[in-house]
């Protein structure tokens, strides 16, 4: 997979606001190694996240900013993907504190000719709420394809130097007023067929199989997806996580969880998927956990 940037030093070309030399990475990809000469910068956009990586004389700079929605269709904005464009650039300066609250600046003191831009899954579990409450018939199973937000990481020699969510998902609480887990919230259409699944560059897709082994109809409207325990894979169209199988017995809210290592088979039309990120947390492939919620915590008293 040749994903290095153009070898031609862009600094030799006339630089300046009007005639700035710009080169796009040859394979048009967003994720992968990024090789820059001194005095070069690369700019790209994924969803509403605009990212710049500069290589100055002795250090690297990462600047990211989540652009405001500004009346744009949120789904449309999330599909935006502009691959890295390399151009000559002055080293950036850190903004005066508070002057650009949305701009996140990190200076990396590393001695390397390249860094790698990698996707990662969320650092907390994601509570996925289907758009409508789902009922699973007794002794049957369903397969849902669920998208969860991904993180943008800059690494060097497998060391994560910078990490932030592409779109910061809202926090949510999974549990009771007394105990529980801080998670991220996400909405999903809960697609049953892959053909109906849209491509979002800033989401990873998980194949979730829910098996109802009880004799009753099982209804739920939120699923706890333990994404820190899942690995991330890259396919042709989508980013994939390990598959998840949840077996729901009679005990309310809890399920047996099976993590099926590897991206689901055959989902990318025969194209092999490659592992891009191991799980953040190591966890047994079989465990029992609080998987479902069926009612929001109710704040009864004003």
């Amino acid at each position: 997979m040749a994903r290095s940037s153009s070898k031609k030093p862009a600094a030799a070309k006339p630089a300046g606001p009007a005639g700035q030399a710009r080169e796009t990475r040859q394979d048009g990809s967003f994720w992968g190694p990024l090789e820059l000469s001194r005095g070069q910068a690369a700019r790209a956009q994924i969803g509403r996240l605009r990212a710049e990586i500069h290589r100055a004389e002795d250090d690297w700079w990462v600047l990211t900013e989540e652009l405001p929605e500004e009346g744009q269709d949120p789904e449309e904005a999330e599909r935006e993907l502009q691959p890295w464009e390399v151009s000559a650039s002055e080293a950036p300066e850190a903004p005066v504190a508070g002057s650009q609250p949305h701009l996140d600046v990190r200076r990396l003191l590393i001695d390397s000719d390249s860094v790698e831009v990698r996707p990662a899954l969320a650092d907390r579990s994601v509570i996925v709420r289907p758009t409508a409450r789902i009922a699973v018939a007794p002794r049957s199973s369903v397969v849902l394809y669920v998208g969860t937000p991904i993180w943008f990481e800059v690494t060097c020699d497998d060391l994560v130097l910078y990490s932030r969510p592409v779109h910061r998902p809202p926090d949510t609480w999974f549990g009771t007023f007394y105990e529980g887990e801080l998670c991220y919230a996400a909405r999903t259409q809960g697609r049953l067929r892959l053909a109906n699944l849209a491509t979002f560059p800033a989401r990873a897709v998980t194949r979730v199989e829910i098996e109802n082994v009880s004799a009753q109809i099982f209804e739920f409207d939120r699923v706890n997806l333990p994404v820190p325990s899942l690995a991330l894979y890259r396919g042709e169209r989508w980013l994939w996580t390990d598959g998840v199988r949840m077996v729901k017995a009679d005990e309310p809210a809890y399920a047996e969880l099976d993590i099926q290592r590897g991206a689901p088979k055959g989902v990318e039309g025969g194209v092999e998927t490659t592992l891009v990120r191991s799980p953040r947390l190591r966890r047994g492939e079989h465990s029992r956990f609080r998987a479902f919620g069926s009612r929001a915590l109710e704040a009864l008293f004003g």
Partner: peptide, 11 residues
């Protein structure tokens, strides 16, 4: 405000 929890819902 992303740090306001999605659930429990605000009152």
């Amino acid at each position: 405000e992303k740090e306001i929890l999605d659930e429990p819902e605000p009152v």
